[in-house]
Nucleic acid binder design. Structure first.
Lengths: 222, 222
DNA sequence: TCGATAATGCACTAACTGGTTACTTTTCTG
DNA sequence: CAGAAAAGTAACCAGTTAGTGCATTATCGA
């Protein structure tokens, strides 16, 4: 998706000819534009014409490559999940002390949501549609299992080292780690009104991250 | 909204004449139908014609009473917030021991989300629209302050009694209590796929509530 | 009982929406 | 270099959408 495809109008360094037509680049531009549009307006609110325009592509191309608006959404959603799960795996937490590993995971989850706000909105949109698209995906389950087992092994190591208490369900912990960051950020607009403070101000964000790390460490502490 | 208005075609007990025309009842039916539709499909996805039909009212009535689709949404959103905040105030937690009071609040929040799933979806929809409608509301701030001060006083009492540690921000605690329930329920569809278990099965719900109470009590414990 | 007012219904529209048909242009292969 | 295949375009379509103009009907106070 973010491969180094040349802009279609300028010549590449290696290739002599400028590719005026570049299927991969067009596809990538469509996916990028669509991710933004779906994130901004949801599946129902996003407009195919707008996506085509922002992708500097013809609407027909969207139907050529992705079949339908929903097909496009499904691709983007699947990519979004694979992206975050891949990034998590790269954290390499196995060689860290259990408490340190858990803190890193909480911090990563928070930072990822902050830097990729479209992930949250896409997931929200998918849940509004009762996970209709995700149901069809097989790759989701595979990458998700890795996350659960990752948290599971941190918990195990923590129990063995005496840092964590026993009997904690990795899935519940996983959900909680996601929840305390996700909720804060997805509801940042209503939250800022309800609590009468700018939840997205830098000090507020830093305070929340500290609070979240604290919450999780207290939750697992022996 | 849920006042005992007579169905427009049947005679009331006290009133002799059947009110063929009943502005309040029509309004109430529109609000009820709209709440369901907006919750099911979001602001963008909801259809005014469908709302009118389900409310057994003419579409013209919606524009007569609420001005626009967005005006209708705003009314429903405001009502939704007032409803939950009112229910919270009725909990009367002041005379309970701090730990007991906090557990009750976590339990109430969870139960409320479970019984009123449309609240979550309405809030999600409003955040997709950057709280455009909530911004215009004044009553929201008033009812929200009561919630924050309620949690604040539980915390104070807990610190005084030696049950809770000092220095916890009531707003952060509030957000966390909401988050651990809200996230689980709003993402129940994708969550059930990602974690390969039915998150809405009765034992799963009970387990989650127990886990959430535990999370909050450990978070505040001295 | 009458007339003002509020409630209601029908038919309409202008703009939009996802999706398609028919066509042109570029690229690649033998 | 021919011509097939792939990439790309513009105009269009049928169905939908929020919103309205206007006539009608019920209610209620005087």
């Amino acid at each position: 998706m973010d491969q180094a495809t040349d802009a279609p109008t300028e010549p590449a360094g290696a290739r002599a000819k400028p590719r005026v037509r570049d299927a991969e680049a067009t596809k990538a531009r469509i996916l990028d534009a669509a991710k933004r549009e779906f994130a901004k307006n949801g599946l129902g609110g996003a407009r195919v014409d707008v996506i085509a325009e922002k992708a500097r592509a013809n609407k027909r191309m969207i139907y050529h490559y992705f079949g339908s608006k929903e097909g496009l959404f499904q691709t983007i959603l699947e990519n979004a999940y694979v992206d975050i799960r891949t990034a998590e795996q790269k954290l390499n937490l196995d060689h860290l002390a259990p408490r340190e590993a858990l803190e890193r995971l909480v911090r990563f989850t928070w930072d990822y949501y902050l830097k990729n706000p479209e992930f949250i909105t896409l997931v929200n949109s998918e849940n509004l549609h009762r996970a209709r698209h995700l149901k069809k995906s097989e790759v989701i389950k595979i990458v998700s299992r890795k996350l659960v087992s990752m948290v599971g092994s941190i918990l195990e190591r923590g129990v063995a080292s005496g840092d964590f208490r026993a009997g904690i369900d990795p899935v519940q912990l996983n959900i909680t780690i996601a929840a305390i960051g996700y909720y804060y950020l997805t509801n940042r607009f209503t939250g800022s009104i309800v609590f009468e403070r700018d939840l997205m101000a830098k000090p507020a964000l830093e305070e929340r991250l500290r609070f979240n790390i604290d919450t999780i460490l207290r939750l697992v502490a022996a």
